[in-house]
Structures are given as C-alpha cells and as structure tokens.
Write a protein that binds this DNA or RNA. Structure first.
Lengths: 236, 236
DNA sequence: TCAAAAGTGTTTCGTATACACCCATGT
DNA sequence: ACATGGGTGTATACGAAACACTTTTGA
C-alpha cells in the first residue's frame, strides 16, 4: 500500500532527565553537547529516534551511549514540539525522566563520559528548551513520589532514615517533622532495620535500613502521603 | 547552518480522545475514518502534524476539521510510538484528551460531520492502537479528576447534584454514597444553588446549581478526594 | 562536658465513612 | 395512596499534625 505521500516527515528526538541523590543534594545528569548548534553547551541526554526503534528504546539507547547507564527505568514526561525550538531544523522531542542512586554509577560516568551531576539548585544555562524539560521532569517526579514510594530508587541499597528524610526535603524543597516522617515511613512496612550504623554523618550514628523488596513491589500503588498537601505541589 | 543530514524524519500525528457526558452515560467521540488504510473503520480524531504548527495546534485543528469543535482545552496523554502501529508507514502519534458537555455541541457535530458519541462501555473495534489510546486517556481522566474538579467541564452550565454524582460514578465505574458525596461537593464552595428545579428526572425535582466560576479558578488545585482510595485507580 | 544528630510518644483535631429516615410530587 | 427519586444529620474511627525531651558519642 502507498505511503502518506502528501505529508511532511519531522525529526523526532528523545531527551532524558536523570535525577540522582548523593545523600545530601538532589542533582541532575547533564552533558556537554558534542555537536553544533550550541556545541559545548550543557544539555540533558538527548538523541534522535531511529527508524526501527520506539521512542522508549531510543531513550534507553541514548542514555547508554552518553553515559554507559543500563537497565534504567524511564517514564515519559511530555512532548516538546514548538516549531522553532531547535534552530537548525524542526525537531519534536519526547521527554523522559528517571532517578538513580548516584554512588552506584559515579565512577563509571565520570571516568568514561563527559556527563556530570549538577545540583538542581545550580543548573547552568542549557540549550533549547532543556531548562523547561527539567522543570517538567521535576514536577512529574514530585507528582509521582507523592503517590508512590519511588524515591527509594534514588538511594543506595543501605540507607538511613535521616537520609531518606533529607531526600524528601530536597525533592519537595520543604522541611518535614522527623517524628511524623519516621512514623509514617515505618508504618509502610517497606523497611528492614539492619544492625549496622552509619557513623559518617553523626557521632551517635544512624541505623542503616534496607528495602523490603517484596513489600515494595506489592505496595507500590499505596499512597504514602508523606507530603502535607501534595496537591499544592502539583501544577499541571 | 546545515540540517541534521544523517537523520531520518518520521511522520508525526496527533490523536484526540474526546469524552462527553449526556447526563446518563460517559461517552467518547469517534469518527469513521475517511481514507485508507482501514477506511470506514472507527477511530478517535486524528491527523498529521504540519510543518508550521505545534502538536497542540495540530490537535486543535484536527478536532475542528473533523467535528467543528472549537475552544476545547486538551491535554497530552502520552506518545504512541511502536514501529509498526500504522501498517502504511511509520507514524509516531501524540495522544490528547479533552472533556466536554455533549449537549452543548450535539447538533453541530451530528449534522455536519460523521463523528458520533459512543458509550464508553460499547466501544467498537478501532483502528491501530486506538483502543489503547482511549484506555490511557480514561486513566488520565481518572487521575486528573481525582485531584482536580475537572469533571464540571463535562456538565452543562446548569446541573443537579444527582447528575454530578452519576457522572463521577460513570467515570470511576463505582457507586458513591449520596449523603457523603453531596456534603463533600458542597464543602468545596464551588456551587451556587439556583431557584429552578430539574423536573425531568424525578417527580420531586432536583435543584439546579451553577459553577461559581471565580471559586473554580481559584480552587482548581484543591484536592477533592471524592473517590475513596484514588490511588487504587491510578496505574501508571 | 558539651555539642550535634538520632530516636521516640502522646494528644488533639479534622475528615472519611457508615448509616436511615423524611420530603415533594406526579400518577 | 403510593411509588419514585431528592434531600438531609449524626456518631464513630482513623489518620494527620503539632509538639519536647532523652540518648549516644566524638571532640
């Protein structure tokens, strides 16, 4: 059968915003663009969708090529389709986002690639509409994390309660009561207390916990409600 | 500056799922496709993105061309990008959805176009992946309506409490307690009671209400929580 | 011994839910 | 007079939020 001969084909790209947490700051992975236009300017991980791959496959491939990261689950944010967003040629970009434990991939990324973790509070000027892309991705992250326990993805396999609290505080840019926070966290049944303590961040030391993987999978749909008035944080 | 000469351009389409409510049933607007492939099969409102328009503009234009509907606010659902989803030629489609008051546009649509309102419970076989598109759109509608008072968009300017309740029951496919429902609804301060009654659906008659437009705009972000356990309805 | 962070309990309040009867009216 | 759908109130339980002191230990 014939093609849709009268229609115009358009470049389609994917752009991936990767969030990471180092125990202290919420960061995003940025890269120095290696080609024109705007060569050497910062951007999120992006590339074109190829003829034989789905956008989601493209996102996975692009992330791997630019950072070496594999097996990272990404979700769509939204489509960025302004006609002039790329000055060279019209490109419609599909946004993706993901969140990972920084330390798990730290060496790998910084040794072999030019990607860097940048504090969410200190994002430099980015190419095109990438600033907006990160904003939208953060909004989706907040939305999702208000409803599901996804922020564990950002933590190492062993973590402390104060670390999780700091993470939530950074993501929502607000302070939380540690007594209420810890009670809610425990009531989820998602955590298993370990004997070991983290003595790096305090003299007394904080107990490490690990995720109860089974409970995590089964309770993923559970509303955590860690954030007072989550609706106030949701803008779309 | 040069184009991205080595890249492949791809057809980009938009597909719009329009929800409507006639006071009794939740429906979607479907159309008989006027061209091959799958001519005369049902589909949602779709068309290709043109070189000088954004996807959102394309959605607005396509909806207008196919149904005459104007000034309808649409939101993105997600991108449908499987390589073989359109057998003629690869096409990446951006999903949109909207909700409108059926009666407001009933005549206009049925007289001039081939679009028809079909009960959500009686969707026929659709072309390509359009069944999936409607599923995703319904999921987004539920998600959104659990957090924001958007379902008023589906109602006429004058409506009764039992009508709204029926609407919520259809959207969430579940039954609600009318005492609790009406109390919550009133507590939002979004409704203004009118003197007039709707005598069509009962002997006693139900009072009409209208939306307090100012309150609606200001409280749009307010979590309504009409639906018990909204998280159980949220799957993505 | 003191500074710094970890850890823990109780009370209060608001909101979600469950539940049953009377009202108005057209036939 | 009765059948049909509309409209209202109360009691209970649960979860969210506010709030302060003790513990541990390295310096």
């Amino acid at each position: 059968m014939r093609k849709y001969s009268k229609q115009t084909r358009i470049l389609v790209a994917v752009d991936c915003t990767i969030f990471g947490f180092d125990g202290e700051h919420l960061k995003v992975l940025l890269i120095k663009r290696g080609f024109e236009p705007e060569k050497d300017k910062w951007s999120v991980m992006g590339g074109f969708v190829q003829p034989e791959e789905t956008p989601s496959e493209a996102a996975t491939r692009v992330l791997f090529e630019l950072t070496g990261l594999e097996n990272i689950y990404m979700e769509q944010t939204e489509v960025f389709g302004d006609v002039g967003r790329d000055p060279i040629e019209r490109t419609i970009s599909i946004g993706y986002y993901a969140f990972i434990d920084i330390n798990k991939y730290q060496t790998q990324i910084s040794d072999l690639y030019h990607a860097e973790w940048i504090d969410i509070k200190e994002i430099p000027d980015l190419i095109f509409d990438h600033t907006k892309m990160i904003e939208i991705a953060l909004e989706k992250l907040r939305y999702k994390a208000a409803l599901h326990p996804i922020l564990f993805e950002l933590l190492p396999s062993k973590f402390t309660i104060p670390q999780i609290q700091t993470l939530y505080e950074k993501v929502y840019d607000s302070e939380l009561d540690k007594r209420n926070f810890s009670r809610k966290l425990m009531s989820t049944g998602l955590l298993i207390k370990l004997q070991e303590k983290d003595k790096l961040n305090s003299k007394k030391g904080a107990f490490f916990y690990k995720l109860n993987e089974d409970a995590y999978k089964n309770n993923f749909e559970k509303f955590l409600n860690f954030i007072p008035n989550p609706q106030a944080l949701i803008q779309d």
